[in-house]
């Protein structure tokens, strides 16, 4: 072919140019250094976790050995009075306090959150969605101290007026604290469940509509079961958030370590105990200091279990549909 001998627009690279090397012209140390630095930044998360565990464990270990509190006494004791004389370190009252406020919160937030998710994913027009979802995100971003204040100065008096059994010792009440927590976790449930429901392949939805199913049935019997692992994940994450919430319970739940699920009662939660006790300048190594970490360890273990479970569920639905 004569054409090959001619020099075209890119003639500089003709057929008989010297054979270039396939080896790297330089060792590219810069590239490797950058990868190492980026990897180190990612590894910081492992360091953080380790640091959390270590900072919790050492004083907790002291709590059980140096301060000589029995594990059985701690886990199953029904009297929480760490700063009184005689002191008592039964964690059950504040554990139940935590469970109580979380439970009341979930009771309020689960139906509302799930219904909102169903509306967002199955009923809302794209325009409505685009409006409502960010508003819910704003709600998720409201500082919990603001929600706590709202609970204390608005919800609590109003509820005491309407449902007196909900507030035994105004203005403090586990049920009202739960309600405020519920307000805080609704967006978590709504947002993650909505994502899970929307990631159900539209083929499934169309098939069901094609068979003549109503919107409600498609939503509750096709989409909901198909998205169940994502929905469960949203509930568990919300639960974890409720258990770990501090400011709302500090403001609204009161400070009495009552071993009860009564929504009208004032309770002390694990987080409230930590927040309330650790504010003062307590000295390192004192029994009060160690108690904070022992309670912190228990709280960390509970939320860790919930988080790991939720992460598993999220992975499950991602594996299926993505």
């Amino acid at each position: 072919m004569e054409a090959r001998d001619t020099i075209g627009a890119f003639g500089a690279r003709g057929a008989d140019r010297p054979l270039p090397s396939l080896e790297a012209p330089s060792p590219r140390y810069g590239e490797k250094l950058i990868k190492a630095l980026l990897g180190a930044a990612a590894f910081l998360s492992v360091i953080t976790t380790t640091a959390i565990v270590v900072s919790l464990l050492i004083p907790t270990f002291d709590f059980f050995t140096k301060d000589d509190i029995g594990l059985g006494e701690f886990l199953f004791g029904t009297n929480w009075a760490p700063t009184f004389e005689p002191s008592s370190f039964g964690v059950l009252p504040i554990l139940v306090g935590t469970l109580s406020t979380s439970l009341w919160g979930m009771l309020f937030a689960v139906p509302i959150g799930l219904a909102s998710a169903i509306w967002l994913s199955e009923y809302a027009s794209p325009r409505q969605r685009k409006l409502v979802k960010p508003v819910l995100e704003v709600l998720a971003g409201i500082p919990t101290v603001a929600i706590g204040i709202f609970g204390l100065v608005f919800l609590s008096p109003v509820i005491a007026e309407v449902l007196p059994f909900m507030v035994n010792v105004p203005p403090f009440s586990a049920g009202v604290a739960g309600l405020a927590i519920g307000l805080m976790i609704v967006p978590i449930i709504a947002s993650i469940s909505d994502d899970a429901m929307r990631s159900v392949p539209s083929g499934l939805r169309e098939a069901a509509y094609g068979l003549g199913a109503t919107k409600m049935k498609v939503a509750t019997r096709v989409i909901f079961p198909a998205a169940i692992s994502g929905i469960i994940a949203s509930l568990v994450l919300a639960g974890s958030r409720a258990v770990g919430e501090t400011m709302v319970v500090l403001l609204v739940a009161g400070a009495s370590p009552n071993l009860t699920f009564d929504p009208g009662s004032s309770v002390l939660t694990m987080t409230a105990f930590i927040g309330q006790t650790a504010t003062g300048d307590i000295s390192t190594g004192s029994i009060t200091y160690d108690t904070i970490f022992a309670v912190g360890s228990l709280l960390f273990i509970i939320t860790l279990a919930l988080n790991l479970f939720a992460i598993r569920m999220v992975r499950k639905y991602r594996e299926v549909y993505e």
Partner: peptide
């Protein structure tokens, strides 16, 4: 997991 650790635990840390 760290994204879900309660903020008060970070306070302890």
């Amino acid at each position: 997991n760290l994204a879900g650790v309660p903020s008060i635990i970070y306070g302890i840390l």
